[in-house]
Structures are given as structure tokens and as C-alpha cells.
Simulated scan of single mutants.
Amino acid sequence: MPSAVSLPSPVTSVASLTPHLYAPDAVRPLRAKEHFLSADTFVELHQHPWPQLTFSTRGVIRLSTQDGSYIVPPSRAVWVPANMPHSIMLIEDAELRTVYLHAWLGPPWEKCEVLEISPLLRALMLALDTTPDGLPPTDPHAPQRERMIAPLLVDELERATQIRIDVPLPTDKRLRQLCETLLRNPADRATLAERAAAIGASERTVARLFRDQLGMSWQQWRQQAVMAHALPLLARGMAVSQVAAASGYATDSAFCAMFKAATGRSPTSFQHRKRSAALA
């Protein structure tokens, strides 16, 4: 008997976390805020007329736009251009940090970018006051410090290494529902036929939609989604067997074969490389 598509964990939906209370301007060109959020919290779709840099000091998040989904572990940040609608899903408990930049600051990037966070960039972002408008800053010299930090922070942004760890999303509503269901629960081993039935479509129709909407097959898209899910877990030192199970693979060997075909390296070698870099 074929397995049914498993139900995802309950989600707590919250509004846009009051970006209007941290609006950057010429006096305060950088504004920062922090929120402690639980796993499976969904920050609803929103936008604002200034760009932002989002990261977490602990915990993995997934930021989504109309065009794709970006997995962001603590070693990375995601750049979101001004006026781009976006939402955030907390994959695990996280301390979410956001830096808003005045519209004339920052690189002229027109799409989201995932960036490696250098020690200096992290220190600059964490040095910013996180008090909202309406309350006196914790540091009375915060506006002056923000103006001094701004040019160095932007220079670090432009120097940062950009990482391809995004998963494209379709515009077709049924196919997007299928994709988002897998992103929320990568361990679900339902077949494409079972997933297609769950959205009221045939397997052939869904396979065609993947080719037409995303320019890739279902298998190729699922591999990209699994890689985006697995890489942060490996980078944090999770055992390969646990990552394989969390990614929907019945055996470690099948997961390792997929990973090596996609990256040219084994999951274990990736872990060692990250650990060595951390100890250097």
C-alpha cells in the first residue's frame, strides 16, 4: 500500500515583526532588531522600502520570496532588496537578527543573495543597537555609531562570498503547494504520484509543470531542495546518518551517493572541512 503524504508540524504564524519601528533614515542609516522565535514559527509575507540583511546567531531559518527559498544557517546571512515581498520560516529555535539599511546604502543587488558572514561583518551587525522607535536607545551614542559603522559594513557586504543555496519556486499554485510541503518536511518519502494526488493533479501533469515552470525535473528539484536542507545540518556537525534520515533517505549510502554526485565530495569530508575552518 502506498504511503500517504505525512502531515507537517503545526505552524505558528506571526505578523511582520514591526519593521516600521526600525525604519532607517539619513540620521540613522542602519537599524537593527532581534527576535527570539521558536521552531515552526512563520513570519508572514511582507515588504518595506529599504533593503535588509537577515541572519540568526543560532538556529537555521528559511527565507522565501516569490522566486525561491533560501536556507540560512548561522554562518550565513541573506540579503533582501528593497520592496521585495518575503516571508520567514523558523526551521529550529533561532535568535533572528535583521539589519535594515537606508535605501541609498548597500550593494545594488536586485535579487536575494546568500552570503558568508566574516567575523568582522558579524561583529559590526551585533554592535548595532536594537531598541525600537519610541524608546531611548540602550546606547545614547547609537545614531553616531550607526553612521560610523555603515560604510565599513557595506564594504564587508560587497567583499562577502556569495553562496548558491537557494531552491527555485514555481508560480503555479498547485505545484507551489507541493514544493512548499516538501520544503517543510524533507523527510517525507512520498512518491511524486502520491504528492500529485494530494494536490488534485496527475503525475504526468506535475512532471510537465516542473519542466515548464522551473526548467528541471522533479528529481532534480528535489535533490536541490534536499541539498539546501542537508548542507546547514552537516555544517553544524550533525551525524551523516541523522542528516540522511532528516532528508528522507532510507539508507546512509543512498544519501551519500546523492551528495557526492551533487558536490563531488562526501558528506563527511564536508563536515571535516567546516570543522577545520572553524579551528583555523
Rank of each mutant, 00 (worst) to 15 (best):
L157I: 14
T138Y: 04
V154C: 05
A190S: 15
T161V: 11
R145C: 04
L231V: 14
S56I: 08
D93C: 05
F270R: 06
E113S: 09
S56W: 03
A39T: 09
L30Q: 05
S253P: 08
P85F: 07
C179F: 04
A193I: 14
I71M: 13
P232H: 08
W218Y: 13
Y249R: 12
S64F: 07
A4P: 05
A244H: 01
L21N: 10
A235I: 03
T171K: 11
F270Y: 11
A127M: 03
C179P: 00
L96N: 01
A142N: 01
V80L: 15
L182C: 07
P85S: 11
R176C: 09
V14G: 02
A193C: 10
R147Q: 14
L7T: 09
T161F: 07
R147W: 01
L214C: 01
V80C: 14
A103E: 09
E113H: 13
V72H: 05
A82I: 00
A280L: 04
M148R: 11
I117D: 00
S16R: 02
A196P: 06
S13G: 05
G200N: 09
S247T: 04
P108K: 05
F42C: 04
A32W: 03
I117R: 01
L105C: 12
R236C: 11
Q213S: 12
Q177E: 14
P2G: 04
R76C: 14
A127Y: 00
M89R: 14
S3A: 13
M227H: 14
M84P: 02
V11C: 10
M227L: 12
V72Q: 07
L7N: 06
Q162R: 15
L182I: 14
L17K: 06
L178K: 00
H46Q: 03
M216H: 08
